[in-house]
């Protein structure tokens, strides 16, 4: 039976790396901005970053909801619905995020459905990450040891009750670190929306680059902004994990 390996196992070396990145990022930021005359383009970039955050937040919401629906359907729904969920997951995992984005943005209008760049971006990225998230959820639920189901059965707990009270709370803790990674993937993928004319951070960077030609400074600062956002996500997920796992993970393994 696979042991329920969760995040904290690798967390102490990762914490070191995190600190190193933060220091490096800060030093790099100072260095770049000191000779970049950052005042010229920082406000523009921050406006772009706000759009990036908006797409990331909306996409996260769509991703979690899509993953929840798909997982529930795949594990517990009757056959046709289950097939639909499997098809969704395979389709969105099997094709590339940019293709999905272009399909929603360029092809859907041909079929009479026009989405704004923002809607298309949130929908495409959310559905894309949601497909991966569904795999994460299913894995976490299936990784709860069989003995837990059996013990609940022996106590006469019903199936739904067992799922809600016994299995899901344990699966939830196991899901947090991989979801953290997915949220970072999503944040990085938001840069794709610049290719459908949404003026996010990546779009502003391109635009400023063309007008000012100060490529290294602009893209350097942009990379650091993305890094800062990623670190925020990581820290938030760590905090959530600590809170959720406080009771569960004092020892290594308790069945």
């Amino acid at each position: 039976m696979p042991a329920n390996r969760t995040g904290p196992t690798g967390s102490s070396p990762a914490a070191g790396a995190l600190a190193a990145v933060a220091i490096l990022g800060f030093a790099g930021g100072l260095l770049v901005s000191s000779f970049a005359g950052f005042r010229d383009f920082l406000p523009e970039l921050l406006r772009g970053a706000a759009t990036t955050v908006q797409v990331a937040a909306g996409g996260s919401l769509v991703a979690v909801v899509a993953a929840l629906l798909a997982t529930t359907a795949r594990l517990y729904a009757p056959l046709p619905l289950r097939w639909l969920a499997v098809a969704y997951v395979e389709l969105f995992r099997g094709t590339s995020a940019l293709v999905q984005l272009f399909w929603l943005f360029f092809v859907l209008p041909m079929l009479g459905i026009s989405l704004s760049p923002m809607t298309a971006g949130i929908a495409a990225l959310g559905l894309n990450i949601g497909a991966y998230g569904s795999e994460v959820m299913r894995g976490a639920i299936e990784a709860v040891p069989r003995g837990q189901w059996e013990a609940a059965s022996a106590l006469n707990l019903g199936r739904f009750r067992t799922l809600r009270r016994i299995v899901l709370p344990q699966a939830f803790v196991a899901m947090i670190p991989p979801w953290g990674n997915l949220f970072i993937e999503l944040l990085k993928a938001t840069s794709l929306v610049s290719l459908i004319t949404l003026s996010d951070l990546a779009f502003k960077a391109q635009q400023l680059n063309q007008t000012t030609l100060r490529t290294v400074e602009i893209f350097g600062i942009v990379l650091l902004i993305y890094l800062a956002l990623s670190l925020l996500v990581t820290l938030a997920m760590r905090a959530l994990e600590r809170r959720a796992g406080r009771r569960l993970l004092r020892g290594k393994e308790a069945r």
């Binding site: 040891p145 709370p169 069945r255």
Partner: peptide, 13 residues
């Protein structure tokens, strides 16, 4: 019927 398992199967949370 009640049952006690080899690996306890306590609910860890």
């Amino acid at each position: 019927i009640g049952m006690v398992f080899q690996h306890f199967n306590l609910f860890p949370h």
